[in-house]
Design a binder for these strands. Structure first.
Length: 860
RNA sequence: GGCCCCUUGGCGGAAUUGGUAGACGCAGCAGACUUAAAAUCUGCUAUCGCAGUGCGGUGUUCCGGUUCGAGUCCGGAAGGGGCCA
C-alpha cells in the first residue's frame, strides 16, 4: 500500500496482484467435470501489434462476466488466443522485408504484454495461435474429413479478382467495383476453387436461428436475411428450333402470363455457346465480367441486355414465343442463372422492358382497380391482388395462383416447385502465402487427393520471398513438388491457402483442449465445455464469422468430432469506442494528445493559442486520428480505472464516448473507495468472525439496507449485462458509506459489512483494487476465489413505502405507509393529506385506484 | 427503395417494463479546508411562475389516440443510425 501520498498507488498494487493470481493459477479451470461449467469467450484478436480501446472494452466486458460467474460457483473457462493468419503479415513482409512469421510472433508478444496489464482473468495456459502448425494441422485434418464426407468440393467458379493484390476478393471486399485495399478495378475470373457445402445446412441454419434466444435480434435478423430462403419454381422454356430447353428460377410463377422475355446471366452456358459465333455478344459478356460479382454493384449498375436472337416457347402456351437476352443483372450463382422477365410486376424487369421496347402486360390486379383501366407506367406493381389476363389463373389470389400454376407445370412436365437460398457455398481458397495450406495433392491420374493423416501437417515453407506479386507458394522452387499418396507418381501440392475465417470457425472448440497434440480436441472436453455460454464481440461479425462457426459445428458433428447444435448459446455484441474529432484551421485531423481542451466547447493546439475545431464523436480510427492509446491510459491511471470507465456510463451494447473527464471521474472514484476503506479500518472494525449483533442503531440499519440493496440490485444488473447500472449502484453504496460514522461496536459491524460488500461488488470490475482492499480488511483469501455474497431479503425491502398520490392523474402528494398496507389504509392515508384535500376542491371521489406499494389515484 | 432500431436536462445515461421522470456520473456554479494551488469535502443544478426551502404551471423530438394514469402501448410525421437492396 502506498505511504505518504495519501493516494492509491495503482502501479505497485496492480502488478502485485497480477503476480499473485499467476502464482495461484486463479484462472485455470478445474478438471472436475462434475462442476457446473461456464465458458466465457471474447472474439480473439488479430495480432496487429498493439491493443486498441475496442479490445479493452471487449475484454473488460468478458472479464466481468468471467469473474462474476467464478464467484457464483461456476467452473469458468476464459481463454485467449490469436487469429494470426491474414494479409497484414504479408503486406508487412512486402513493405518491411520481414518474414510474416517473425512479424506475427513479435506482434503477439507485444500485444500479449499489453493485454497482461489489464488484469484479465484469462487462462493463458490455453493460449493458441492459429498460424502455428500445431493448430492448423488439425484443421487440415478436418478439411480432408470434410472432403471424404462430401462437405468440401472443388469447382470452377467466377470470382472477384483484384489484379493488384493478385488475389480473390470476397464480395464484401469489393467496394464500388474496386478492391477494398488496392482500389484497383475488380475483374471477374474463373478459377478452380475449394468450397465448403454450407448450403447443405441452409434450412437447419435458418430454422435454428429461432432457438438462439440469447442472441441479439439484430444479428438473428441479419442471418435470416443472409440465408434468405425463397420458395418458388423451376420453369422450363423450350428453345425454339432446338431440342433442349432453358430452365429458369422464379419466386413469382403466378405472373407467368405476364412474361415478355427471358434473361440469362452473362456466364450462363447457353450464352457462352452463342458468344462463340457472335463477337458482339462476347464483348457484352466481358463487359459484364468487369462488373464483379457484388450484388450491390450489380443492382446499382444500369440494366443492360443483349438480344441473343434465340427464342423460347412459353411453357403454358407453346405457340407464344419470347426473346432470350443476356443480361447484366442476372447472377449465375443464384437460382439457375436464368429468369423470365415480367415487367409489370418487377421493377428491374420493367426498366429492362422499357429500354428494349418489350411488352408490359399486367397480370396482378390490385384491390379496387378496374381491370380495363389498370396500367403500369413507371412503377412495377409488386403487391398482392387478383390474377387477370392469365387464362386458367384468372380470379385467383397470388398464393393460390402460385400453387395452381406449379401443379399445372408439373402435369405438363415443364416445371416444378422448388426452394432456393441466397446463401451460397463458402469458397475457402485464397491465392496467398500466409494462411493454412489446403491439404490436397493434385495427381494427373488420381485427381485431387487429400493428404493422408500421417503426412499432416502440410507446413508452410519458411524460405519464401515477396519480391514479386502473386503467391510465393506457387513459385517456390521445391515445396509443391511431391508424389501422389495414391499411385506414387509425381504430383503437385495445392498452393492455395484457406480463408482465415476457417481458423476462427473452430477455435472456440480448440480452447476446450488447447494442448492436445494428437487431436483437435477430445470428445470429452468439448462435450463438457461447449457450447460457449457467453460470447462477446463486435457486431461486424454478425453474419460471416458467426454463420461459418454455426456451420462448422454441424459439419464437425456430422464427421464425428462432436455432437452439438450451436456453438454460442449467448451472444453479446458491444458498441464501438468513440471519441471527439479535432481539426486544425487548415482542416488537418489532430490527435487528442495534441489538444488543450479549455471549457465546454473550446480547444486549442497544445502549447499554443491556435484554435482547434471540435468535430462530432466518431469511432476511433487512425484516419481521423481520434485514437486514445490504452497503454497511455493504463500507465497514467491504471488498468482498473480504464476498466471502470469502460463499464460506467454507457450500456455495453451502445457506443461509448471516451472522454478524459470521464476517465478522471473513474480514477477519482477508485481513490475515494480506497480512502473509505482506509477510514473504515482506522475506525477499528470488528474481527471478521464477530457474530451478528442483536440490534442496530438507526443509521447502522440504514447502512445495512443500502449495502444489501446495492448487492441485490448490482447482482441483477450483472446478470443482465447492465454494467453501467451496476456501477451506479456501487457508487450509491459508496455514497452511503461516506455518510456513515460509527459510534459503537454494532455500528462498526455494519460498517465492515458495507465495506466488504463494496469491495466484493468491485471484484469483477476493478479486480486489482478489490484484492488490495480485501487483503487490507484482513481477509486471507482472494476476491478472485471468494464466493459472491447473498443479500438478506429482509434488508432489501423496506418496512415503509412511499406512495405517490395522484388526483385526476396529477401527482399531488407522497404518503408513507406500511409495506403491503391494505387498500383501505392506503386510501385513507392518501385522502387525509392536505395537498390532496386541496386538489380535490371539496369534490367527492368518483373512483380510487390503488396500486399496492406504488400509487393511489383519486378520480373526482 | 424495403425492413429494423433509436430520439429523455448543457452532456453520458436511469426509470422496478403502464404507476413518484431525470438514479449514478460528467460538466457548471457556490462554499469549506489551504498563505496559495492541487487534492478532498459540502451544497445547488430540467424549466417557468408566485416570492424563498413550499405551492403551482410546463416538460421525455412533434401531432393524434387508448387508459384512472403513457418516456413506456397504438397510429402518423420529422430527424438520426443499422442491415438488405
Amino acid at each position: 500500500m502506498s505511504e505518504g501520498t495519501g493516494r492509491y498507488n495503482f502501479l505497485e498494487v496492480e502488478e502485485k496482484w497480477r503476480k499473485v493470481w499467476e502464482t495461484d493459477k486463479s484462472f485455470e479451470p478445474s478438471a472436475d467435470r462434475s462442476l457446473p461449467k461456464y465458458y466465457v469467450l471474447e472474439m480473439f484478436p488479430y495480432p496487429s501489434g498493439r491493443i486498441h480501446m475496442g479490445h479493452v472494452r471487449n475484454y473488460t466486458l468478458g472479464d466481468v462476466v468471467a469473474r462474476y460467474r467464478r464467484a457464483r460457483g461456476f467452473n469458468v473457462l476464459h481463454p485467449m488466443g490469436w487469429d494470426s493468419f491474414g494479409l497484414p503479415a504479408e503486406n508487412a513482409a512486402i513493405e518491411n522485408k520481414v518474414h510474416p512469421a517473425k512479424w506475427t510472433r513479435e506482434n503477439i508478444a507485444a500485444m500479449k504484454a499489453q493485454l497482461m496489464t489489464l488484469g484479465l482473468s484469462l487462462d493463458w495456459s490455453r493460449e493458441i495461435s492459429t498460424c502455428e502448425p500445431d493448430y492448423y494441422k488439425h484443421e487440415q485434418k478436418m478439411f480432408t474429413d470434410f472432403m471424404r464426407a462430401g462437405l468440401a468440393y472443388r469447382k470452377e467458379s467466377w470470382v472477384n479478382w483484384d489484379p493488384v493484390e493478385n488475389t480473390v476478393l470476397a464480395n464484401e471486399q469489393v467496394i464500388d467495383g474496386r478492391g477494398w485495399r488496392s482500389g484497383a478495378l475488380v475483374e471477374k475470373r474463373k478459377l478452380s476453387q475449394w468450397f465448403l457445402k454450407i448450403t447443405a445446412f441452409a434450412d437447419e441454419l435458418l430454422e435454428a436461428i429461432e432457438s438462439l434466444e440469447r442472441w441479439p435480434d439484430k444479428v438473428r435478423t441479419m442471418q435470416t436475411n443472409w440465408i434468405n430462403r425463397s420458395e418458388g419454381a423451376h420453369v422450363d422454356f423450350s428453345l425454339v428450333g432446338r431440342d433442349d430447353s432453358l430452365r429458369v428460377f422464379t419466386t413469382r410463377p403466378d405472373t407467368l402470363y405476364g412474361a415478355s422475355f427471358c434473361a440469362l446471366a452473362a456466364n450462363h452456358p447457353l450464352i457462352a455457346e452463342q458468344a462463340e459465333n457472335n463477337p458482339d455478344l462476347a464483348e457484352f459478356v466481358s463487359e459484364c465480367n468487369r462488373l464483379g460479382t457484388s450484388e450491390e454493384v450489380i443492382e446499382k449498375a444500369e440494366k443492360k441486355g443483349f438480344d441473343t436472337g434465340l427464342k423460347v416457347a412459353h411453357p403454358l402456351d407453346p405457340s407464344w414465343e419470347l426473346p432470350v437476352y443476356a443480361a447484366n443483372f442476372v447472377l449465375m450463382e443464384y437460382g439457375t442463372g436464368a429468369v423470365f422477365g415480367c415487367p409489370a410486376h418487377d421493377q428491374r424487369d420493367l426498366e429492362f422492358a422499357r429500354k428494349y421496347g418489350l411488352p408490359v402486360t399486367p397480370v396482378v390486379l390490385p384491390k379496387g382497380e378496374d381491370p380495363q383501366a389498370f396500367d403500369i407506367v413507371n412503377e412495377a406493381y409488386v403487391g398482392d391482388g387478383t390474377i387477370f389476363n392469365s387464362g386458367f389463373l384468372d380470379g385467383l389470389g397470388v398464393d393460390e395462383a402460385k400453387s395452381k400454376v406449379i401443379a399445372r407445370l408439373g402435369e405438363l412436365g415443364t416445371g416444378e416447385g422448388t426452394v432456393t437460398y441466397r446463401l451460397r457455398d463458402w469458397g475457402v481458397s485464397r491465392q496467398r502465402y500466409w494462411g493454412c495450406p489446403v491439404p490436397v495433392i493434385h495427381c494427373a491420374d488420381c485427381g485431387a487427393v487429400p493428404v493422408p493423416d500421417a503426412d499432416l501437417p502440410v507446413a508452410l515453407p519458411d524460405d519464401v520471398d515477396f519480391d514479386q506479386p502473386g503467391n510465393p507458394l506457387d513459385r517456390h522452387p521445391t515445396w509443391k513438388h511431391t508424389t501422389c499418396p495414391n499411385c506414387g507418381k509425381d504430383a503437385v501440392r495445392e498452393t492455395d491457402t484457406f480463408d482465415t475465417f476457417f481458423e476462427s470457425s473452430w477455435y472456440f472448440a480448440r480452447f476446450c483442449d488447447a494442448n492436445n497434440p494428437d487431436e483437435a480436441f477430445s470428445r470429452d472436453a468439448v462435450d463438457y465445455w461447449l457450447p460457449v455460454d457467453q460470447y462477446v464481440g463486435g457486431i461486424e461479425h454478425a453474419v460471416l464469422h458467426l454463420l461459418y462457426s454455426r456451420f462448422f459445428v454441424r459439419a464437425l458433428s456430422q464427421c464425428g468430432y462432436m455432437n452439438l447444435d450451436e456453438p454460442f448459446d449467448g451472444l453479446f455484441t458491444q458498441g464501438m469506442v468513440c471519441h471527439e474529432t479535432y481539426r486544425s484551421e487548415d482542416g488537418k485531423w489532430l490527435s487528442p494528445v495534441d489538444i488543450d481542451r479549455r471549457g465546454a466547447d473550446s480547444a486549442f493546439l497544445l502549447g499554443t493559442d491556435k484554435p482547434v475545431k471540435i468535430g462530432r464523436s466518431e469511432k476511433m480510427s487512425k484516419s481521423r486520428k481520434n485514437v486514445v492509446d490504452p497503454e497511455n491510459i493504463v500507465q497514467t491511471y491504471g488498468a482498473d480505472t480504464a476498466r471502470l470507465f469502460m463499464l460506467s456510463d454507457s450500456p455495453p451494447d451502445r457506443d461509448l464516448e471516451w472522454t478524459e473527464s470521464g476517465v478522471e471521474g473513474a480514477w477519482r472514484f477508485l481513490n475515494k473507495v480506497w480512502r473509505q476503506v482506509q477510514d473504515a479500518i482506522g475506525a477499528g472494525l470488528p474481527d471478521r468472525n464477530t457474530p451478528l449483533p442483536a440490534s442496530f442503531s438507526g443509521p447502522a440499519d440504514a447502512l445495512r439496507r443500502a449495502a444489501h440493496k446495492a448487492l441485490d440490485g448490482a447482482t441483477g444488473d450483472l446478470e443482465r449485462f447492465h454494467f453501467n447500472r451496476a456501477v451506479a449502484r456501487i457508487r450509491e453504496l459508496s455514497n452511503a458509506i461516506g455518510e456513515f460514522s460509527p459510534s459503537d461496536d454494532s455500528d462498526r459491524w455494519a460498517y465492515r459489512e458495507a465495506v466488504e460488500h463494496l469491495v466484493q461488488l468491485l471484484g469483477p470490475m476493478t479486480p486489482h483494487l478489490a484484492e488490495e482492499l480485501w487483503r487490507a480488511l484482513s481477509n486471507d483469501t482472494l476476491v478472485a476465489r471468494s464466493t459472491w455474497p447473498v443479500a438478506d431479503p429482509g434488508l432489501v425491502v423496506d418496512d415503509m413505502v412511499t406512495l405517490a398520490v395522484q388526483v385526476n392523474g396529477k401527482m399531488r402528494a407522497k404518503v408513507e405507509v406500511e409495506r403491503d398496507a391494505s387498500e383501505e389504509n392506503a386510501r385513507s392515508a392518501a385522502l387525509s393529506h392536505e395537498n390532496v384535500q386541496r386538489a380535490m376542491e371539496g369534490k367527492e371521489p368518483r373512483k380510487i385506484i390503488v396500486v399496492p406499494n406504488r400509487i393511489v389515484n383519486i378520480v373526482v
